[in-house]
Design a protein around this nucleic acid. Structure first.
Lengths: 112, 112
DNA sequence: TCGTATTACCTAAGACTCTAATGTATTGAA
DNA sequence: TTCAATACATTAGAGTCTTAGGTAATACGA
């Protein structure tokens, strides 16, 4: 489990990128996908997820549609055109930030 | 200039690592060092820096000494033993977080 | 069939970290 | 002598998260 402070500011980027890769997704599905991809080390709480989804929708980056599954209603989120272009920029921003952090911390990227 | 939200949670790590590499430093010096190492893209505001320094001191990771430079008094910060061991852990945490983020975002680290 | 876990949506209070603004004072250079 | 840079610091407010709580459907084992 990571220090939760590090996650701050990355949640929107994660959500947007998952939607870019997977097409439409619903909230609970996003939490499970993040858990899977991070091997359990990143857990999105619902108190963080839903306000963020609603904020991204209000900003015009996402649209929603409600799909009935029997009696249960799922709310699917899809990127708008504006959302699609913003993903690219946010990934670039994230990569630039990481690069800067390696310089400031004076460490080399290690992978393996 | 980076999206400021991404910086959140990394400030303590930056300060501790700079002190580990450079020995004792004073507040203003830290802001300049960060600006230099990041080529101007990361700027620590004083409202973020000083409360963080005081917090790290209260946590026992830093000690201070006041050095008179003529009429001016500089406040130097030095890592305690506890601070030195915490740097190692924080760098490891940061690297693990980056690695996880690359997995979740499904991007490959690009450097150059 | 009954209880529990999981799925699935959501909000609200409070903690925490940052920005922006402000304040004080010294030093150095034009 | 006046302005920029150096050097310390605090505070109000914004924003993002955690923790806790609420509702309800579905699936599964005892």
């Amino acid at each position: 489990m990571h220090s939760p402070e590090l996650l701050k500011g990355t949640l929107q980027t994660i959500i947007l990128k998952l939607l870019a890769d997977n097409g439409r997704m619903y909230g609970y599905e996003i939490t499970q996908k993040v858990k899977d991809l991070s091997q359990g080390s990143l857990v999105l709480t619902e108190g963080a997820l839903y306000p963020t989804l609603h904020k991204l929708e209000a900003a015009g980056l996402l649209t929603t549609e409600k799909i009935s599954m029997g009696k249960r209603v799922r709310k699917y989120y899809t990127l708008t055109v504006q959302g699609q272009s913003s993903v690219i920029k946010r990934i670039e921003d994230f990569e630039a930030f990481i690069s800067t952090m390696f310089n400031v911390l004076q460490i080399k990227p290690q992978f393996g």
